[in-house]
Design a protein around this nucleic acid. Structure first.
Lengths: 236, 236
DNA sequence: ACCTGAACACCGTTCAAGT
DNA sequence: ACCTGAACACCGTTCAAGT
C-alpha cells in the first residue's frame, strides 16, 4: 500500500525530506520485483507495463530506460525463476531420479507463479540461470551414458514437457477456484459420458479414466516416467 | 480491396442494387473463414475482432451476434483444423505407426496455419472434430493392448506433445524469414560455443548437437519415438 | 543519464439505438 | 433478430521536453 494523498508528516529529528523525496531510483531489479509480485497476485493477464509502472509509482514510459520491451521483462521473470531452481549433485548411480528432480523443479517452480509458464513456452532461455540449469542437466544425462545427440534432444524435450504441463495446469487453475475445479471436472466427465455412444464409443467408455485419472501430479509423473524411460533406452 | 468512397456506378442491365446491397449476411462460418484467412496471412498476432470485422466489411460489435468472445472464435479455429485431420483405419498390426500418424497430423495440421498452435495449448478441445479425433486415438491405443489408465494419459500426452512442439517451431518461424533462420541458429551455436567453459562446460561441449542436431522434423520424430515406445512398454 | 507527459495507434467488449 | 456507432476501459511503445 502506498500513501500518496495523505502522507504522514516528517518524523521529528534528523530524517527530513532529503531521504524521503528522491525515492529509490528505478532499476531492472526493482522492475522485475514489481512485475513478479503482480504476476503472483493476479496472474500473467494482470501484468502490463502500466501495472508495473503504477506499482512503482511512475509512468509506463519510465520503464523503457531499463527494459527494452515487455518481452524482455518476461524473459527476466523466467530467468528469475531459473536462478532459484535446485540443481542436484550429479551421481551416476541415480541419474534417472536426478533428471526427474530437475524436471519437477522447473514444473513446480513455474507453477509457484501462477500461469507464468505461458511466458516460458515462448523462447529458448539463454539467461545465466537457465544455462547453468541446462549445463547440469546435460551433465547428468551424459552420466546416464546417453549418446550426444540423445542428450541434445533430451535437454530440449524435458523442459518442453515441464513447461507445457505447467501451462496446461495453470490455465485450468486460473479459470476456477478450487471448488469450481471439482465441479468443472465433474461437468466434463458427465459431458463425455453423455455423448452419443454410436459416434464417440471410446470416449464414452473411457469417461472415467479420462477425467478422474488420478490427481494432476500423477498425470505429470506418468509422462515424466515415459520420457525418462524412453531416453534411458538409448543408453549403453 | 473494398471501394467505399468511389463505388462504380451500377452495371447496365438486370443486376441492380437489389442483389448487390444486402451483402451475404454474417454467420459463424463466414467469421471463421475470415479469421483463418487472417491467421494464414499474418499469424495469430494479426487476428483481432477488429481485423476480422474489417475483412467482412463491418464493425467489431457485429461479430458478437454470432460469436461469444474472441476466445470462442479461437476455439472455432482449432475445431476447424481438427475436422480436417486424417484418421487412419485402426489396424492392430500397425498401431504404433498409426498413433504416430495421428500425432503428426495435428502437429503439421496446426503448422499449416502459422502459429495457430498457440491458441490450441489453451484449452481442452471439446468440439466434435476434436472428439472424433480423440475417439479414434483411444481406439488405436486400446488395440495396442494398453491399460485404460495408460490410454487415458496417452490421449492427453500425445496431443500435448504435438501442439507444444508445433508452437515452439512456429514461434521461431514467425520471428524470422528462412535465411534469417539459418543465421539465427548459427548465432546461437556461436553463443553457446563462446560461453565461459569453466561455468558452462557441458553446454559448450555440446554446442554442435544442441543446435545443429538434425532438422526440426528429426527432433519432432525423436520425441515421438520416445513417447510411443514409452507408452508401448505398458502394453501386454 | 534518467525520467516524464502526452500522444499514437491499437485492443476486447458493451450498449443504446436503429432497421 | 440482426446489425451498428459510439463509447469504455484498457494496451505497448515513442518522443520531445524536462531535470
Amino acid at each position: 500500500m502506498v500513501f500518496v494523498s495523505s502522507p504522514m508528516p516528517p518524523r521529528p529529528g534528523r530524517r527530513s525530506r532529503i531521504t524521503e523525496l528522491p525515492r529509490e531510483p528505478l532499476s531492472r531489479e526493482r522492475i522485475v520485483d514489481a512485475a513478479m509480485a503482480i504476476v503472483d497476485a493476479g496472474g500473467l493477464d494482470a501484468l502490463s507495463m502500466r501495472s508495473v509502472a503504477l506499482a512503482l509509482g511512475t509512468g509506463p514510459a519510465s520503464l523503457y530506460a531499463h527494459v527494452a520491451s515487455k518481452e524482455e521483462l518476461l524473459d527476466l521473470l523466467i530467468e528469475r525463476v531459473a536462478v532459484g531452481l535446485e540443481r542436484p549433485e550429479p551421481d551416476a548411480e541415480h541419474w534417472q531420479e536426478q533428471v526427474k528432480d530437475m524436471v519437477r523443479a522447473i514444473h513446480y517452480g513455474l507453477l509457484a507463479h501462477r500461469d507464468l509458464a505461458r511466458a516460458s513456452l515462448a523462447n529458448i532461455p539463454l539467461g545465466e540461470g537457465a544455462l547453468t540449469w541446462s549445463d547440469r542437466l546435460i551433465e547428468i544425462l551424459k552420466l546416464g551414458g546417453l549418446p550426444d545427440q540423445v542428450v541434445a534432444y533430451g535437454v530440449d524435450l524435458l523442459p518442453l514437457y515441464a513447461v507445457a504441463t505447467a501451462y496446461e495446469y495453470a490455465l485450468n487453475a486460473e479459470r476456477m477456484s478450487s471448488e469450481e475445479g471439482e465441479r468443472y471436472i465433474q461437468e466434463i466427465r458427465e459431458y463425455f459420458a453423455a455423448l452419443p455412444p454410436d459416434r464417440f464409443p471410446h470416449v464414452v467408455a473411457l469417461a472415467g479414466p479420462l477425467t478422474a485419472g488420478g490427481t494432476e501430479g500423477e498425470r505429470f509423473e506418468f509422462g515424466l516416467d515415459v520420457l525418462v524411460a524412453g531416453l534411458a533406452a538409448y543408453g549403453r
